[in-house]
Design a protein around this nucleic acid. Structure first.
Lengths: 191, 191
DNA sequence: GTCTATAATAGGATAGAC
DNA sequence: GTCTATCCTATTATAGAC
């Protein structure tokens, strides 16, 4: 097996285990067992357990960052931008649920430098979303409310979609997208 | 110090540490250190680390269960009941944020029997809330949508309020309550 | 009720053979 | 690239002195 395939496989399997049991409850022996190798062999592909976590979380954080940066720059209404953001969360949740779950649950187990990078990206994400909300408010597209509360109620739902989706896989993505937008936006959009 | 005071103090301190670092990242030495005693002394008050977690989580789950059971039995509209449920989440989050955080993050580290009890209570909670939503839908108080999605988008926000509140303590509870109800319900209530 | 000492186990990581 | 063997440390929990 080529080195990079193996590494990818390790990271992917780790994401699944971390999601199920939490980072600290998964041992390198557990991970190796799931891959059908011995724990020592893992270190030919990765430098440490934390490096795996960093790969899982930071790659996913970069995905989210890229999406919102693109959306931010578009020439569209704020409401349309919020809809695109909702869609990007649905897409990423469906595409890599275990990675998104890890990002949500285990970021605090990153060490120094990786933790810093993650927090920077998260702050950037929230601040970009905040700008979109406030601009929408100024242009009377969005109800004048506490923007922090809107930011929170939106993100809290989008960030935990990974908990809900597996139990409701039967729902069409297009239906989910439409209903979730309705659900989250109708409360904050001027009629 | 009386035995029960000490036990309460242990559970409360544990909840704070679990919230900050996650159950598995907190050692009995860490916990003892915060209490100014040695790890071995903890076992005069509690039987195991997991028993502390169970106390934290199950007591909080019982609080939530009691609240929703009371609300369910009242002679009020479904929307009024949802407002009461939102309020109970705000109250419990403010009152015992660390406990609520643990319940959300560390329930999967409960063992056999306690895990079972927790999941039973959670299922009961969700099924009661589901009934309220569906009744409201039948009475045309709530927009006809996928009830599972409404259930999820409500709960996802209410359950993670503990993440948001500490950063926004300056907001008046009455304002938070009013704006959050607006935010969460206006999207699902018939105009 | 708290201490010291220690048992028993599990964890991350490395060395070196193949 | 994977293995066995092993190091070193950390962990939960108990025994028994004070």
């Amino acid at each position: 097996m080529k080195n990079n395939d193996r590494k990818e496989q390790i990271v992917k399997t780790a994401a699944q285990l971390f999601r199920e049991k939490g980072y600290n409850a998964v041992s390198m022996r557990d991970l190796a067992k799931d891959l059908g190798i011995k724990a020592a062999s893992l270190y030919n592909h990765i430098s440490s357990k934390e490096a795996i976590l960093a790969e899982v979380i930071l790659s996913t954080a970069r995905d989210f960052t890229e999406h919102i940066d693109n959306t931010f720059l578009e020439e569209k209404s704020s409401v349309k931008k919020l809809e695109e953001i909702i869609e990007s969360h649905i897409d990423l949740t469906i595409e890599k649920a275990n990675f998104v779950a890890c990002l949500n649950n285990d970021w605090m187990h990153l060490e120094e430098k990786n933790l810093n990078d993650y927090i920077k990206m998260r702050n950037h994400y929230e601040s970009t979303l905040r700008k979109i909300i406030i601009k929408g408010m100024n242009l009377h597209e969005i109800e004048p409310q506490n923007p922090e509360l809107i930011l929170f109620s939106l993100l809290s739902t989008l960030r935990t979609l990974y908990l809900w989706y597996p139990k409701n896989k039967h729902i069409e993505k297009s239906v989910l997208s439409k209903e979730l937008k309705n659900n989250l936006l109708k409360g904050i959009i001027t009629i």
